[in-house]
């Protein structure tokens, strides 16, 4: 009995601090924020206590705000897809390499994370500008007569967010692929599977937990991107993250900001859940 009690105490000790932190630091402010989102905003008086859904109605009935949401989802889907398609082969090579320099290669993948988002976006600005590296080079060799409009476009934002998220995808996939027995792939080849057949029938289903985790991670990061869309998208390009910030800080409209924050969260959660269900229906790996 005493021994059992002690293990209970140990477990509480291990789980406690993080739980407390999440409870006080995240859930409580969220609850308060949700309450705010049901308040009214009266110009000049800021927030007025109320119990109304008008902030939510406003978001979905105003085409401007609604289009910010669809744009955000679109960019998040595109960047996540690019991360998955380009990250998978890279993760596979990293997982399977027997090179002595494997740790160095992994460091190279992680290296971009050492640079903050804002600093990196500033770097892309140097590259993308009308007189930036890309345009200057292309015009220098005579490939272009007019500079390409890259800066302040959706394309620039997609490139920027992809660059931020790719390491997360690669690292997640790499650790899962490493856990797949190499001889299982060899067995497939031995039984007559070509590399594409092996990838589709064996590798991908077995890597599915990693694909899911990586996709969810990068999707959430994309949905909530802030620095990259602000710096590379410019003042007229809006995504949900910057929009929330604007409402709180520039418009001082806390109720509407709170509502947008919750819509962003709900959209992210719903889409993630939907993807999860779809994948689980197609592959049976999740049951392990």
């Amino acid at each position: 009995m005493i021994a059992r009690q002690r293990t209970h105490l140990t477990a509480a000790g291990l789980v406690g601090p993080a739980t407390l932190y999440v409870g006080i630091g995240i859930l409580l402010p969220l609850a308060i924020l949700f309450r705010y989102s049901l308040n009214q905003f009266v110009p000049g008086k800021f927030m007025v206590d109320a119990l109304t859904v008008e902030n939510y109605v406003k978001f979905f009935t105003d085409i401007y705000y609604y289009s910010v949401l669809t744009r955000t989802v679109r960019i998040a889907l595109i960047t996540t897809l690019i991360c998955l398609v380009t990250g998978f082969p890279l993760a596979y090579v990293l997982a399977r390499t027997r090179s002595r320099h494997k740790n160095l290669l992994i460091m190279l993948v992680v290296l971009p994370l050492f640079v903050g988002n804002a600093v990196r976006a500033a770097g892309w600005m140097v590259a993308f500008g009308n007189k930036g590296v890309i345009n200057a080079s292309l015009m220098g060799i005579g490939a272009l007569s007019q500079p390409l409009e890259i800066m302040f476009t959706e394309a620039a934002v997609i490139v920027g967010i992809t660059a931020v998220n790719l390491p997360f995808m690669v690292l997640t996939l790499q650790s899962v692929i490493e856990g797949i027995d190499r001889s299982v792939e060899e067995a497939a080849f031995n039984l007559g599977a070509t590399p594409p057949q092996m990838a589709r029938r064996i590798l991908l289903p077995l890597a599915m937990p990693g694909v899911l985790a990586g996709t969810i991670l990068t999707f959430i990061l994309s949905m909530n991107a802030y620095a990259t869309p602000v710096l590379l998208g410019g003042p007229r390009f809006q995504m949900m993250g910057p929009l929330v910030y604007n409402q709180f800080i520039q418009q001082n409209n806390w109720p509407f900001g709170g509502a947008i924050a919750f819509i962003l969260m709900a959209a992210t959660l719903l889409l993630t859940l939907a993807a999860n269900l779809m994948v689980q229906q197609r592959y049976r790996t999740a049951e392990t």
Partner: peptide
């Protein structure tokens, strides 16, 4: 036809 030391069955 190869039988691997770890059997290498397809777990899924």
């Amino acid at each position: 036809g190869m039988v691997f030391q770890s059997y290498a069955l397809f777990p899924h």
